[in-house]
């Protein structure tokens, strides 16, 4: 285990800002999404046309969905075009065999208790980067595409429908879109649990203080760290 040497500024404001918007919108989307699938609350009193109980759940889902999309695109932009090295997932090259080499193996070995000491990273560790890619990048893309295709169904001929309606024949039917969107939604709570555990664990095990880093932006530089 390393010794704390200095504090470094890893997560700049845009990343932290993105992170919390993202976290928040996922929670809201999950809750409203599940409610849309299974509205459990009691019916409101009074005349139907004055009530918008269920519509509001959908409305919130859609509003937050667009926040989520915007935030996602913004993070993508920031990763590709900013000069923030820590935000670029620079080392993430899953297509290159080298990436799957030592550092990745070491990190996996460490998680599997096959290795005595814990490697640690100032930016994303390779396993975290892979997890982010699969769950956050691919998962979000999937939810956004299927979500937009379904959203377009509400208004045939609209821009969204024209731009994303092609997903319908690919999925086979509107029902399949709903089903896929619903099933894939579950990867988010799955990810969050693993993510939170990993974050807290690193904090305790290698004392890089990662938990607060996503609030303050600072991580601790520790001895014998790998670069990026």
């Amino acid at each position: 285990m390393g010794r704390i040497i200095e504090e470094i500024y890893v997560w700049r404001l845009p990343v932290r800002f993105y992170h919390w918007i993202n976290a928040l919108s996922i929670v809201v989307l999950m809750v409203t999404g599940l409610y849309i699938a299974s509205p459990v609350l009691n019916p409101p009193p009074g005349e139907a046309v004055w009530q918008h109980n269920f519509v509001m759940w959908r409305y919130v889902h859609y509003c937050i969905a667009f926040v989520f999309i915007g935030n996602f695109l913004y993070r993508l932009y920031y990763a590709l075009l900013s000069d923030d090295e820590y935000a670029k997932f620079g080392g993430f090259r899953p297509w290159s065999p080298a990436w799957w080499g030592e550092p990745f193996k070491e990190q996996v070995a460490s998680y599997l208790f096959l290795r005595k000491d814990e490697p640690n990273y100032v930016g994303h560790n390779p396993v975290a980067a892979l997890a982010h890619f699969i769950f956050i990048f691919c998962g979000s893309t999937f939810m956004i595409l299927t979500g937009l295709a379904m959203y377009g169904e509400n208004r045939p001929g609209s821009f969204v429908e024209t731009a994303f309606g092609w997903l319908l024949p690919i999925f086979g039917s509107s029902y399949n879109l709903h089903f896929a969107h619903h099933v894939m939604a579950w990867i988010f709570p799955l990810y969050v649990i693993v993510h939170l555990y990993a974050v807290f664990r690193h904090d305790v095990v290698d004392r890089t203080s990662v938990t607060s880093s996503i609030i303050t932006g600072y991580k601790h530089k520790v001895e014998d760290e790998h670069s990026l």
């Binding site: 609350l41 019916p43 409101p44 139907a48 004055w50 009530q51 109980n53 269920f54 519509v55």
Partner: peptide
């Protein structure tokens, strides 16, 4: 549909 929107199921 009005009942759907209202949440009256």
């Amino acid at each position: 549909r009005a009942f759907y929107d209202a949440g009256m199921f």
